[in-house]
């Protein structure tokens, strides 16, 4: 199956700093692809290169089988992390301008914009300047600017940041709806629960490198049932005596314990029973949060 977005061995330097280092990943048609990673990991730079805003120093990016170009830009709907519109321009004029810059004819742009304004119950704002709109309203207009030219690919950089719960829910709905229409979606985020709910494949960035990637479910499985959830009553001091484990999450009477090489869950249970009253003992797959943190920490140690 041919890849919709194909990133191969891409690197980008800014002066002496390496923002993206030999990154490769591919996004298949109709997928929702999550780009994860801490701040400064190189996600936005990668997204800008896919959008042909920046050029990679080395490596190659192709969109729908062709190298990135002004042509490929027209097939992508891009919502940048930092949103912005012309404050002094009327909503309708602004949307017309942005849609035509994406290659739409005047009539096609008009039809599409009217459809979306109607859909978001925003038709009455047409003649308003953006500076008159509330934050939630301008977020909707921003979103229309991203989708009006009906692109095959959507790229959202931190789409949920700064959204109120209503707009956040609306955006999620639209993303899933567009996926069902066969569109391909790539977004970057910090919010793990959204990734777990929506993404098919993920790629985890750290310090400019893609440190972990693939299908979300297989990644979780590959970590195996290596996590112990423990509810207990009593002194939590015993957790410090455990060997071959890492305690990811602990509170007065709860602990999420990650088993490292050679550690046995039965041994943990044994020790725990000596020191506290056990109310729950469960062996599960790691959470994405845990995978994220431990992978990031592992790569830090490696560097």
């Amino acid at each position: 199956m041919s890849l919709v977005i194909d990133v191969q061995n891409v690197s980008k330097h800014f002066g002496k700093a390496t923002a993206v280092n030999q990154v490769s990943f591919g996004v298949e048609k109709g997928q929702i692809f999550g780009l994860l990673g801490p701040n400064g990991a190189g996600k936005t730079t990668t997204i800008r290169m896919i959008n042909h805003i920046l050029n990679p120093d080395t490596g190659h990016i192709s969109i729908l089988g062709e190298a990135v170009s002004p042509k490929s830009q027209e097939r992508i709907g891009y919502l940048p992390e930092e949103r912005g519109l012309y404050k002094k321009m009327k909503v309708f004029d602004q949307l017309m301008y942005l849609a035509q810059l994406k290659g739409l004819s005047q009539t096609a742009a008009k039809t599409a914009i009217e459809f979306w304004l109607d859909r978001f119950e925003a038709s009455s704002w047409k003649k308003k300047e953006v500076s008159e709109l509330s934050k939630g309203m301008s977020q909707k207009i921003q979103f229309i600017a991203t989708v009006a030219h009906d692109p095959e690919i959507y790229i959202f950089d931190e789409p949920f940041s700064g959204l109120d719960p209503i707009n956040s829910e609306m955006l999620k709905e639209v993303i899933l709806e567009e996926k069902n229409r066969g569109k391909t979606i790539l977004f970057s985020t910090h919010r793990m629960e959204q990734v777990e709910q929506m993404c098919d494949d993920i790629c985890l960035f750290n310090q400019g490198k893609a440190v972990l990637q693939g299908n979300l479910q297989s990644i979780k499985q590959s970590f195996g049932n290596n996590t112990v959830l423990l509810d207990f009553i009593g002194d939590s001091e015993f957790l410090n005596q455990l060997e071959g484990v890492r305690v990811n999450n602990r509170s007065t009477n709860f602990a999420e314990i990650r088993l490292l090489e050679g550690a046995s869950p039965q041994h943990i249970l044994e020790i725990a029973m000596k020191h506290a009253e056990i109310q729950r003992f469960e062996i599960v797959q790691p959470s994405l949060q845990d995978i994220f943190i431990s992978t990031v920490n592992d790569t830090k140690v490696a560097v």
Partner: peptide
């Protein structure tokens, strides 16, 4: 400066050079 600080420039440059 206004286009830069309002961040619209990133949207524009995803359409034109």
């Amino acid at each position: 400066i206004e286009e830069k600080t309002s961040r619209i420039v990133e949207i524009i440059t995803s359409s034109v050079k």
